[in-house]
Computed example of a mutant assay.
Amino acid sequence: MVRLLLWLLGLCVLAVGLVIAARENDGFVLLQWSPWRIELSLNFFIVVLLLGVAALYSLFHFIDALLRMPARARRYRLRQRRQRAVTALRDSARLYFEGRYGQAQRSAKVAVEGGESPGLAALIGARAAHEMRESDQVDAWLAQASQHEDLRTARLMTEAGILTDRRDFADALTRIDALQSGGQRHVAALRLAMRARRGLGDWVGLLRVVRLLQKHRALTPEQAAPVRRQAHMGALRDADPSDLDAYWRDLPALEREDAQVVRAMCEALIADGQQAQARKLIEAQLDREWDSALVVLYAETDGSDVQARIGRAEAWLRVHPGDAGLLLALGRLCRTQQLWGKAQSYLEAALAVQPTRGVHVELALLHEHLDRGEDARSHFRSAALMG
Rank of each mutant, 00 (worst) to 15 (best):
Q344M: 13
L207W: 06
G273K: 00
L251W: 09
L5H: 14
D323V: 13
W316L: 04
L327H: 00
D26M: 10
A140W: 06
R94E: 01
G331M: 02
S292F: 06
Q338S: 03
H367V: 09
R84D: 11
G161Q: 10
H216N: 00
L286S: 02
G325C: 02
V16T: 12
A170D: 15
D258E: 08
A73Q: 14
R185E: 06
Y76N: 06
V86G: 06
I38Y: 15
W316H: 03
R381F: 07
L42D: 10
R100D: 05
Y346W: 14
L89Y: 13
S292T: 14
M1G: 05
G303E: 01
D64E: 01
L51D: 05
G325D: 01
D371I: 05
A73I: 13
R3F: 02
V19Q: 11
S382H: 11
E255K: 08
L179I: 11
R256Q: 08
G115Q: 11
R208D: 14
Q307W: 03
R198H: 11
L49G: 05
M69E: 04
S34A: 06
L31T: 06
P35I: 09
V359Y: 03
L254P: 05
F28W: 15
A22Q: 13
S117Y: 07
A225Q: 15
R357L: 12
H232Y: 15
G373D: 12
Q32I: 15
A85N: 08
I20S: 09
R37C: 02
A218V: 06
R23Q: 10
A22E: 08
D291I: 03
R77D: 03
I20D: 08
Y76P: 02
V112S: 00
C12T: 14
H379P: 08
L6R: 14
G341R: 09
V86Q: 09
R377L: 12
V2Q: 04
D177S: 08
T336A: 03
S304Y: 03
L219D: 13
S382E: 14
I310M: 04
A315V: 11
